[in-house]
Amino acid sequence: MGNTTHYSFQYQRGMSYWGWLLLVAVLGFVLTCASRMAPAYLDARYVTEGLKILAENPDLETMSAGQIKKELGRFFLINNVRGEPTEALQVVRGAKGTLVSINYELRQPLIYNVDVVMKFNKQLNTASPELCCDALVDLEQFRKRD
């Protein structure tokens, strides 16, 4: 009785040096990208969360622009959101409601002279708070309707 299935160990070696080197390089690049970009996306998530909490405020229509900025500023301070998102906050009163807009872009250095540009545009329109956080209104057109 001979064994008809014949396995040869010469074809079962595993990854070569170059295979491992490529795997480590790709994994390193992915981790570098994630470590540089993740904080910006985390801040954007907190911006969205802050606008949703603001949308639930029953006094939002009667609040002044300063009060709205103070309320969001307090939320951002608690959640450690700094920089561009806090500086880009705009409150615009219109005929049909109030628009709270946080529109900004971040340029993050990735590797040497390569930068990643991330754009974020979050809006809360009091005329339709259920559509919170998606940029549905052109801010310039909203201002012209006044």
Rank of each mutant, 00 (worst) to 15 (best):
M1A: 14
G2K: 15
N3Q: 13
T5H: 10
T5F: 10
H6G: 01
F9N: 08
Q10Y: 06
Q10F: 03
G14S: 11
G14W: 04
M15S: 10
M15L: 14
Y17Q: 09
Y17H: 03
G19M: 02
G19N: 01
W20D: 04
L21V: 13
L22F: 15
V24A: 14
V26N: 01
V26W: 09
L27N: 01
G28V: 00
G28S: 14
G28D: 03
F29Q: 06
F29L: 15
V30T: 00
V30D: 01
C33Y: 04
A34C: 11
R36K: 15
M37Y: 04
M37I: 13
M37F: 12
A38Q: 02
L42D: 10
L42E: 09
L42F: 13
L42S: 12
A44R: 07
R45K: 12
R45V: 06
V47L: 14
T48N: 11
T48H: 08
E49G: 02
L51A: 07
K52Q: 13
I53W: 11
I53C: 00
L54P: 08
L54A: 14
N57C: 12
N57G: 05
P58R: 13
D59K: 15
D59P: 08
D59Y: 15
L60A: 06
L60V: 11
A65H: 13
A65T: 07
G66E: 15
G66P: 08
Q67H: 12
Q67N: 12
I68K: 04
I68W: 03
K70S: 15
E71Q: 14
L72R: 14
L72S: 12
G73C: 09
R74Y: 11
R74K: 14
F75Y: 15
F76M: 08
F76S: 05
F76D: 02
F76W: 08
N80T: 03
V81P: 09
R82L: 05
E84L: 05
T86C: 00
T86S: 11
E87I: 00
A88G: 11
A88M: 02
L89R: 03
Q90V: 00
Q90N: 10
V91C: 02
V92Q: 07
R93E: 06
R93P: 00
G94A: 08
G94N: 05
A95R: 09
K96F: 05
K96H: 07
G97L: 06
T98P: 00
L99G: 01
S101P: 03
S101H: 02
N103I: 00
N103R: 07
Y104G: 06
R107A: 07
R107Q: 05
Q108Y: 05
P109H: 12
L110Y: 04
L110R: 09
Y112H: 10
V114S: 09
D115I: 03
D115H: 08
V116M: 07
V116K: 02
V117C: 10
V117E: 08
M118D: 01
M118N: 06
K119T: 10
Q123D: 04
Q123C: 08
L124I: 07
L124N: 02
L124F: 09
N125L: 14
T126E: 04
T126P: 09
T126R: 05
A127Y: 05
S128F: 04
P129F: 13
E130Y: 06
C132W: 01
C133F: 11
D134F: 10
D134C: 09
A135D: 00
L136F: 09
D138S: 11
L139S: 07
F142N: 06
R143G: 01
R143F: 12
K144V: 13
K144F: 10
R145I: 04
R145G: 06
D146T: 05
